[in-house]
């Protein structure tokens, strides 16, 4: 089955892509670039680098821009998925949704309307096991946004390795936050994945932070051989 994967640039969409590749044929990535930082549907930090990730994965990218207004941005998502169907012959869509009924419901409805399959391979996954599998598979993931207590600016740009995961686990227990950032506490950016033929190196980035709300914006990045 030919599938398109909704790509946010973060770990969940790229791990869902990895899972889909194990069982079906992924023929393209699909990104909706939101101009609204508070988008209900679409992850925003570093979304401008989705094209670099697609190139690293050796997959074509279908990219559509949205103003990011609630519900109206769904029309733009539908447009992107329809474009992927028409240009790449996708029969279904894969998302990295874990717990968000809001996101899953809307993507399911769009796919149903377009006559496409919809898969959510991380749906209600065991979050600790998922994070361990992510690292074990060789994903390299940076923290690209923090949006909750207790995260301070030292977390921005930090790579999630075994030590960071252990710290996240302690904080998740203490502050009742989700380990994966599914509750919007964290956003991430993937610089390497097992199916990337090249990895991403960040040459320049800037940090903005205030009151447990910060972003790590990558200004310059490039692909290097693995």
């Amino acid at each position: 089955m030919k599938l398109g994967v909704l790509l946010s640039g973060g770990k969940d969409s790229l791990f869902a892509c990895y899972r889909a590749m194990e069982k079906e044929e992924v023929v393209c990535l699909i990104t909706v670039v939101s101009r609204n930082d508070e988008s209900y549907m679409f992850h925003t930090p570093n979304i401008h680098l989705a094209a670099l990730q697609a190139e690293a994965a050796g997959l074509p990218l279908v990219e559509v821009e949205t103003a990011g207004e609630e519900e109206r941005e769904l029309d733009d998502l539908q447009r992107a998925i329809a474009l992927a169907r028409d240009e790449h012959g996708i029969e279904g869509v894969v998302t990295g949704a874990i717990l968000s009924v809001y996101q899953a419901t809307r993507v399911q409805r769009i796919c149903a309307g377009l006559g496409l399959w919809c898969f959510n391979p991380l749906w209600h996954t065991d979050q600790a096991a998922y994070m361990e599998a992510l690292l074990a598979a060789g994903f390299r993931v940076l923290i690209a946004g923090v949006f909750a207590e207790p995260f301070d600016e030292t977390w921005l740009g930090r790579e999630i390795d075994a030590d960071t995961l252990a710290e996240l686990r302690r904080l998740a227990d203490r502050y009742r936050i989700s380990l994966t950032g599914e509750g919007g506490e964290l956003e991430t950016f993937v610089t390497d994945a097992p199916f990337f033929t090249q990895r991403i190196v960040v040459d320049e980035a800037s940090v903005t932070y205030r009151n447990h709300n910060g972003r790590y914006t990558i200004r310059q990045a490039r692909l290097v051989a693995k």
Partner: peptide
């Protein structure tokens, strides 16, 4: 299938 993780594993859990 790709549906296993979505429809079966949450029930197993």
């Amino acid at each position: 299938s790709l549906g296993l993780d979505e429809f079966v594993m949450p029930i197993v859990h």
